[in-house]
Every structure is written in structure tokens, then in C-alpha cells.
Design a protein around this nucleic acid. Structure first.
Ligand code: FES
Ligand code: FES
Lengths: 145, 145
DNA sequence: ATATATTAAGACCTTTTTATCCTTTATTAG
DNA sequence: CTAATAAAGGATAAAAAGGTCTTAATATAT
């Protein structure tokens, strides 16, 4: 569904959000540790997210990553996906035709459209803040045990 | 969503079904031409589909690929996807955790679950026969113009 | 000011996916 | 039986994704 980069990116964002709500800025190492991702690769993804202003980064000692509590309700899952994987999943043809359109639909166009609409709505309506809540109350997890 | 192989595979199956309904057996070249896919690569995919008994192949002059009209109503989109991409899309965690379970769900588990259920139902309920109909009446297409 | 901790950036390596090519095997027509 | 045709199978190549490493930039605490 999503690229590995995107999966790590989403997990990182949810983790950072959770810690930011506790007023803790987190380092790359903490993140990679807690979401069980390769450190250097995660760094690259955080750079992308930072350039897209989805997360704030601070260099130097006591530095790290954080998300302003005010912003995290406005950051949707979709925004993260778009920043990392682009908007392909939102609009490209499910069978790989050069374009997806009503004018020249592929055989699965209608079936896909409805599923894609559900997916897009979900991605758009779900915020990072919301997702960080389950983490807090221990009902959801970001890594295997 | 699906791999390129899977996209070509689905397109090939729908095309072969359409031609089989006209009692025409089609060659690899015809298929690649009509679905606009790389010939040799398409051959590989057809081999997989053939090994999985989703399509029948006949060697030699007048040979090619076909699907028994009786079977095509029973071949679902899901069966093709499973034969080529495996069943990952049906059951792996949307955030890449080692397993997707209710016991230890990731933060997006519930949101994903509902979308994945829709997707699975659609893949399971949609048959190749059904998809070949739009092609016949000219309302759907397997390649760009 | 300096040493240190931390992210940013770019070059590089590895694995997987996508794609091609060549040889073998099976089938048909003449 | 032979020549021609078409798929099967295996080896190889190219491109993309996934991942690492080294150096530079920047901020902090002492
Ligand atoms: S044209 Fe294929 S999904 Fe729209
Ligand atoms: S645990 Fe992530 S989707 Fe189920």
C-alpha cells in the first residue's frame, strides 16, 4: 500500500507527536529505537518531513524533533503520505494506465474509485494527534514486542 | 497498490477473457500489443498465471492463451492478485509492523481494517468475466489511446 | 572560545522489481 | 518427418527502492 519510507514516516510522526504532547523533544536515535526502524534511513525520511514542515527539527545538544501541539491536529495522515510517496495513491489508475479518467476508464475504474474515495477520506480525516492518543493510553503500538 | 506485474497480469486476464468469449485464442504478442505491456515481461507473468491455472496455454502454431468461458465467472480479481503479489495486501499491517492483529494493533489498525475489508470484498466479488463485459461494449479500456 | 551533541546533506552500497534475451520444449501444418 | 510457430524456462541487465556511511553545519553547555 505505502512504501517502507512512508510507513516509517507515519510511525515516526505519531511517535514524535506523542512525546511532544509530554513536552519532550526526541532525538533520531530515540525515534528509530521506539519505532524499530533503521537509524540512518529514518534520518532521511525525517529530513523530508522536516522540509515539508510536518515536523520541526533542532540541531545541537538537546536538539531533536518535535511537533507543535497546535499543529498536530491539523496534520493528516494524507499529508504525510503525500510528502513521502507523492499523490499517486490518490489519483493514479489501479491497473497502471497512464491516466485515470471517467472519459477512458479501465475495467476496474468504478470499483477502485469507490475504495479510493474511502481511503482518501480516511487519510484526510485522520490526524496525527488523534493517532497519538491510542499510544498514550496503551491501546496501540508502534513496534512489535 | 499493486505491483506492475500484477497490473499487467490483471489487464492480460481481462483481455484474454474477452477474446476467449469470442472463441479466439490469443498469442503473447497480441496480448502485449493490446494491453500495452513489455512482451518478454508479460510472458513471465503469463507463466505464473498459467502455473496457477488461472489461464490455459497451448504451445505451437495456432497456440496461445485462453480461459474457458465456464471458469471466467469463477476467477476473481483477488485470485489474480494473490497469484502474483501474494496475500500481503489482504493481511499485512498498513504501517509495516511484523504482524497485524487485534491483540497488538498499530495506531491506524482500525481505520485500515475497514478499508481493507472493502478492498478484499471487492477483489473477491469481482470476476474476470464481469470485467471483460465493459471491454466488449466499448465502455472500458485496457490501454491509453 | 571550545568541545560536544545533534540534525542536514551527499555519496555510496545492497536488494528487489522490472525488463530483456537466448535456448529449450511442445505442437501444428505441409 | 520436417520446418515453422508459439510458450516455457533460465541467465542476464537496468532501474528503483531500501539502506549505510562520512562529512558538514549548527546549536548548547561549560
Ligand atoms: S482508469 Fe483505472 S482506476 Fe481509473
Ligand atoms: S496492526 Fe497495523 S493495520 Fe493492523
Amino acid at each position: 500500500m505505502f512504501s517502507k519510507s512512508c510507513e516509517y514516516g507515519i510511525r515516526a510522526m505519531i511517535y514524535i507527536a506523542g512525546e511532544s504532547l509530554k513536552e519532550r523533544r526526541v532525538s533520531l536515535k530515540d525515534i528509530a529505537q521506539d519505532i524499530d526502524s533503521p537509524v540512518a534511513f529514518t534520518a532521511k525520511i525525517l529530513q523530508q518531513l522536516s522540509r515539508n514542515n510536518l515536523v520541526d527539527s533542532v540541531k545541537g545538544p538537546t536538539g531533536g524533533f518535535e511537533i507543535q501541539p497546535g499543529r498536530m491536529k491539523k496534520i493528516s495522515l494524507g499529508a504525510i503520505v503525500k510528502a513521502i510517496d507523492g499523490d499517486g495513491i490518490f489519483k493514479t489508475c489501479g491497473l497502471g494506465l497512464k491516466e485515470c479518467s471517467e472519459k477512458r476508464p479501465c475495467p476496474v475504474h468504478n470499483q477502485f474509485k469507490s475504495i479510493r474515495e474511502n481511503l482518501c477520506r480516511m487519510l484526510d480525516e485522520t490526524s496525527v494527534f488523534e493517532l497519538s492518543q491510542g499510544l498514550k493510553d496503551g491501546s496501540t503500538f508502534l513496534r512489535h514486542k
